[in-house]
Write a protein that binds this DNA or RNA. Structure first.
Lengths: 202, 202
DNA sequence: ACGGTAACCTACCATGAGTAAGTTACTTGC
DNA sequence: GCAAGTAACTTACTCATGGTAGGTTACCGT
């Protein structure tokens, strides 16, 4: 008897791209970037390795694409949340809250956002840089709205602090497992908000 | 004519260990963890690969040892700085300042501290955990001294925030290159200190 | 001097990133 | 409908590098 022939399904480029990103995000999150093999990703998609290279160029490229997609989603979510606020304080609070909720909804795949440190120093630096600016730029915008005319360098520094603080708190929360998104948000607000309030144009 | 024989110098274990850590720190910082090869490290020491494995077990082990050493130095420096303060605010400020100065003194090798994300998920988790606790524990201690009796979970969260903020600000400073350690310290203090001041035992 | 041990090296394996070249499914013009 | 073109896909490799087995040599204690 003839076992059903492989029936090589062909799929549009865009569709395959998403499939690959899904699979890669999962595999990277499960095993960590280093330990994850390209063959494992390929197998999960149901395809062979060169396909991945045709789409993303390299393992690092694939990682960056995963990070970029995740960050874009994150940015959308937080932007939307901040937009529905009535006053500046509420805006920041909603932003933080949306951030933590987003990470919860992504499950373990959140770790992926912090794998960018795994990228070799010089190579894709500008890509990483762009992704970074995306987030800190958003925060800078929020701050600027709250304290228009304030020292630009200071605002940039504040944005860095806020992003760093959020990331670290999120990782800590993930490890502990018993801290609610609400609690984390309050901690962040309590520590940071009064400092922001003191920011006035000079 | 006989070209001078290799004169295989033999060296005590502890000494070789330090040589290897020095070389590895440099190579990891230059090329990044991934792109750095064990052979490159070995060559820099003037030794062959199996020696590295005899001392540190694996590439990851070597990385962790580098990170641990650097963090220990950092902890020493900040502890000393904080100890010479007259009041709580000054203590925190001196701690931050020492942190930035330390990274400056280390040059590019500072990036190394943040390569811990490069370690595969489950494997050396407890080692990474220990290193992390070393730093956040120190900060928690500082906070506790300032606000004795405050909610322990909250203090832990604050410690995470502060560490994350510092790290991120340091990376940003390294990339920009035109922000003094003093300036960075002030930014951090301004944002965080007033929030800390509001922390009272409940 | 003379074992014994610990540092060290040569020579190898295994895995996984990346690629060249050919094959097959779909599309498009006639 | 049907050929020709093209884009997705595969097989079958290369090559760099993490890691190791087993032998060799410098040093230390007696």
């Amino acid at each position: 008897m003839q076992v059903g022939k492989p029936v090589r399904r062909r799929v549009s480029r865009a569709e395959r791209e998403q499939q690959i990103l899904d699979a890669a995000s999962t595999v990277f999150a499960e095993r960590g970037y280093q330990a994850a093999s390209m063959d494992a990703v390929a197998e999960r998609v149901g395809v062979t390795k060169p396909v991945l290279y045709d789409h993303f160029g390299s393992k690092e490229g694939l990682l960056l694409a995963c990070i970029a997609r995740a960050r874009t989603e994150l940015l959308e979510v937080t932007t939307k949340a901040a937009g529905s606020a009535s006053n500046p304080e509420d805006m920041v609070r909603r932003g933080f809250r949306a951030f933590f909720d987003f990470l919860d909804s992504q499950g373990g795949a959140a770790t992926l956002l912090y794998e960018e440190a795994a990228t070799p120093i010089g190579s894709a630096a500008e890509a990483v840089e762009g992704i970074r600016n995306q987030q800190t730029g958003f925060v800078t915008g929020l701050l600027n709205a709250q304290a228009p005319g304030a020292d630009a360098l200071r605002l940039e520094a504040y944005a860095q602090v806020i992003v760093g603080a959020s990331e670290r708190l999120a990782l800590w929360r993930g490890r502990r497992g018993d801290v609610s998104a609400e609690q984390a948000t309050e901690y962040l607000m309590d520590l940071v908000w009064s400092g922001l309030g003191a920011t006035t144009p000079r």
